[in-house]
Write a protein that binds this DNA or RNA. Structure first.
Lengths: 244, 244
DNA sequence: CAGTGGTCTAGACCACGCC
DNA sequence: GCGTGGTCTAGACCACTGG
């Protein structure tokens, strides 16, 4: 590892970035599983032939990217798609009054379909590709609040038809069944009028203003994995965004 | 600085945090102005009696919080509320097609008013306090797209009435005229139906779904400074949110 | 070429969790 | 008490900027 760097201006990559890439490789390959305790800084430093400080910098960057969790006195763990973390990181709809609570969800239907234009573009699928399409309703405080349509590449999620049920926490499902880690996501929000079917599902009048959230979620390698379109009732809740 | 720490479990603060607090104090007091080049790491280390590495860590944290800008070979500068940075950090409405462009804006009216309940709560104002209330329209690609109402504490923004005009970039105005730096903001989004006055201002039908963004912006000390309510037409644009 | 931030190293000590 | 991550130091060298 010590001499992978040519030291020319072109293509110079700091050592700690190379270390980071190498460690991310282990996550992608599944050598390190979510929740697992990874070797200590000293061990990694010895094994990779760099100083402890360089290892530390790589681990710090990965921690900032929510890939690892470090606990003083215990060690460094691979981040898990656990409820609490997902809630904080990926679920931005919160009731106006209280703090956030994880919404339950009921599946309306799911089926294998030919990908439409939006799905092909968002998920980088070839023409004629198939997707799994899931429709569900999420409740906030017991009241239907979000209608969601989730699309997944059928080629990537092989064996999806064998599922007996679809859990509430999909990112854990992706992780455990397909070893896919969601690393980041991009959301685009618009205000739209409720369609007839959305109105029926959410128990509101047709034409009610809904917050439409289109999310594309990416894996560790930067490939799009999931397209999720949510239509949200926002009379008692809002989408929270922190700008820092 | 070396011995401000009691080394007891209670109230332990790392040195670099103390350094950071001390440097932030200079920003709050205005000793260091936006755009200014601050002393080099070595100078600061000597002046404060700590190692260069400790200074570096404090500066890195402040850079991550967008308070400083570091440029290799040149030095470390106090961050400016410049168009380009504001655009990236605080303006999340982008056209569906292109990349982001800074919107122009036209002031509809501004006046001093008695603060309403929402303003008192958001800005932590006492009962009976006064605010400056600004109404403006922002255009995206030449078309009216956003109707905004901005509220500022009259007690904090003294002399506001003396302004001959209100510029497009308000955060630069706050910085230059009142030495207030906006450090972070929280936005809450809902979908609402266009009111009669919004419809008139935006040239859409009454009842059109609008994206309503309520922003509270905070200064370096964490005090709320600005309440901004935006109603956005989202037929040709969207609100972009990155989840990492 | 001098000065700045960026990287890398080596070693010491501290706070924390667990046994 | 031991091992972990977290802090702090000191010093070397590298990459970038500007004169």
């Amino acid at each position: 590892m010590a001499d992978t760097n040519t030291r020319t201006t072109f293509g110079y990559r700091p050592l700690y970035i190379q270390v980071k890439d190498s460690l991310i490789r282990r996550l992608i390959d599944g050598a390190w599983q979510p929740g697992q305790l990874i070797p200590s800084e000293m061990e990694l430093a010895r094994a990779m032939g760099v100083s402890q400080g360089t290892i530390r910098k790589a681990l710090d960057v990965m921690t900032a990217e929510n890939l690892l969790v470090r606990r003083q006195g215990r060690g460094t763990y691979v981040a898990e798609p656990a409820e609490s973390r997902i809630l904080f990181q990926y679920f931005r709809i919160v009731p106006d009054s209280d703090e956030a609570s994880f919404p339950d969800s009921s599946i309306l239907r799911w089926s294998r379909e030919k990908a439409n234009g939006a799905e092909r573009e968002s998920l980088a699928l070839p023409k004629g590709a198939a997707v799994w399409r899931i429709a569900r309703i999420r409740n906030l405080g017991g009241v239907p609040a979000i209608a969601e349509t989730i699309s997944l590449s059928a080629a990537r999620f092989t064996g999806f038809e064998a599922l007996v049920s679809i859990p509430n926490n999909l990112y854990r499902l992706y992780s455990e069944n397909w070893r896919i880690t969601i690393a980041r996501a991009r959301e685009k929000l618009k205000a739209v009028a409720a369609s007839k079917s959305d109105a029926g599902a959410l128990g509101c009048a047709e034409g009610t203003p809904l917050l439409r959230v289109v999310r594309v979620a990416f894996d560790l390698e930067g490939n799009p994995v999931e397209l999720r379109v949510s239509r949200c009732l926002t009379d008692q809740a809002h989408y929270l965004s922190e700008l820092k």
